[in-house]
Design a protein around this nucleic acid. Structure first.
Length: 486
DNA sequence: ATGTAC
């Protein structure tokens, strides 16, 4: 079918597919003509059907306003990555495994340092080697923490706070983490023994795939007031840390897929794709999965907290930088489901917001934000690739009205992992990056090929689309210097 | 993303 016939242009950076078939609401995409064309072209391959996936999401019970996709959209499991969907419990709203994703609460922390680019000159290799040595990474990697059953339950209940209690990082990190690094409805008793067992030695590890730790320099400031609030200056060194809930989150997803499949049948929910199995959020099954996801999310918060400590350790070991010179700027989550109050058509409603590969991007004044940032809005951390810029943006009032306070999370994959592996030999990518002055240390070759800059969309372009659409605003641009991968 | 198989 020619989907192009259905797509309606709302403005230069927003397109809409009006409801047709079983869609309950429209599907909306933050794209321009060029990226829409690219997405439609990719549609010829089954694997790349993000548009169809967004229409499928628009068919789910209780969905409010629209199924929306950010400019970094690409296909995922059931839901597109780069998507947001909010559900009203009063209207049969559902919770879905695919709407969260398997890497529950995958996210990014940005650490700002008191260092400038000059402080690192000539020491980049040493820092890269030390990071490689200190930070465990890669598929199946384990860390220094070997937790007991009791301790893993505390990780699941207390999140980042428990990591601080164990001596990883500082109390003042917690204020700058989304949800302060702990979601309150977590229930370890609904997480399988297998999931916990797989995670016992993995807290404080980076993982594989698109996860990384990157040392970067601020090379552009766009908004002096917000940059000052965020503590950012030109030439400053910052560190971005991208990881999630490792084996535990993945196992929760695996465990709950058949569980929610049964619930889908029990409650007579019609889903356009088996991958979209779900349960009414107010059903016992929906509630149970929600409590499991919250536990998975807390594990990811704890993981990033331990990793932030390991980053500080590496900076001390390599450069004698004290840990007080490395502060948490902010931490955002990418794969979440949470209760939020949003205004829809002038009415305040409590909604269950699924963000799948997208970032909460609250505008100024929201009580959820740390006091230091409240007047300017939430920092939005956009991870680029090993070879391209990353961005720090800020949420806007318009984003609150249009996208439930949601923005993009990264550049967005443009080529499948398999395709990237074929096209980008690791040695060639490492050499190309070296010529650009970017040092890469990886535990395996696969993550270099699959995550090669060419496998991603143009980050400058996706950021431009979201900013021109008014959903977020630029604060600073960051350039990679050292990148550690799994 | 993920002990890339039950």
């Amino acid at each position: 079918m020619n989907r192009a016939l259905h797509v309606r242009k709302i403005h230069e950076y927003l397109f809409e597919i009006p409801p047709h078939g079983k869609m309950r609401v429209p599907a909306r995409l933050y794209l321009d003509e060029r990226s829409l064309r690219e997405l439609m072209e990719n549609q010829s391959s089954e694997e790349w059907n993000a548009l169809k996936q967004l229409e499928n999401v628009a068919c789910l019970p209780g969905i409010v306003k629209a199924a929306m996709a950010m400019a970094d959209v690409h296909p995922g499991y059931g839901f597109p990555i780069g998507g947001v969907a909010a559900f009203d419990p009063k209207d049969g709203g559902v919770i879905s495994v695919a709407g969260v994703g398997f890497d529950i609460n995958c996210g990014v922390r940005c650490l700002r340092t008191h260092l400038t680019r000059r402080d690192l000159t000539g020491k980049e290799e040493k820092l890269a080697d030390t990071m490689f040595e200190v930070i465990p990474a890669g598929l199946g990697s384990t860390g220094e923490l070997k937790l007991s059953t009791k301790e893993i339950d505390r990780v699941l209940r207390e999140g980042a706070r428990y990591a601080v209690r164990l001596g990883y990082g500082r109390e003042d990190d917690l204020e700058y983490i989304e949800e302060h690094g702990c979601l309150s409805d977590a229930d370890p008793s609904v997480v399988s023994h297998t999931a916990k067992q797989r995670q016992m030695a993995q807290v404080g590890t980076l993982g594989s795939g698109n996860h990384y730790v990157e040392v970067q320099v601020v090379d552009q400031i766009y908004n002096a007031r917000a940059a000052e609030a965020f503590g950012l200056e030109l030439g400053q060194i910052v560190i971005m840390l991208h990881t999630g809930s490792r084996a535990l989150g993945h196992q929760i997803g695996t465990d709950y897929l058949p569980f929610l499949e049964k619930a889908t049948r029990k409650y007579g929910i019609e889903v356009p794709d088996r991958e979209l199995v779900c349960a009414p959020i107010e059903s016992p099954e929906g509630q149970q999965y929600f409590r499991a996801v919250m536990a998975g999310a807390n594990c990811a918060f704890a993981n990033r907290q331990v990793l932030a400590h390991l980053v500080r350790q590496a900076f001390w070991k390599a450069l004698r930088v004290p840990d007080t010179a490395i502060e948490t700027l902010y931490e955002v989550a990418h794969n979440t489901v949470k209760w939020e109050v949003h205004e829809v058509n002038g009415e305040r409603r409590r909604l269950l917001v699924h963000r799948k590969g997208s970032t909460r991007a609250f505008g100024p004044g929201r009580p959820e934000l740390p006091e230091r940032y409240r007047a300017v809005g939430q920092p939005v951390l956009v991870g680029g690739t090993m070879g391209t810029a990353s961005y720090i943006l800020v949420g806007t009032e318009q984003g609150m009205r249009e996208t439930f306070g949601t923005a993009l999370h990264g550049a967005g994959r443009a080529k499948s992992r398999r395709q990237a592996k074929r096209q980008y030999p690791a040695e060639r990518i490492i050499e190309e990056l070296r010529k650009q002055g970017i040092i890469v240390r990886a535990h395996g070759k696969a993550s270099i090929s699959e995550e090669a800059p060419g496998a991603y969309k143009d980050v400058e372009h996706v950021v431009e689309v979201m900013c021109n659409a008014g959903i977020v605003a630029r604060v600073a641009r960051l350039r990679p210097i050292v990148c550690l991968k799994g």
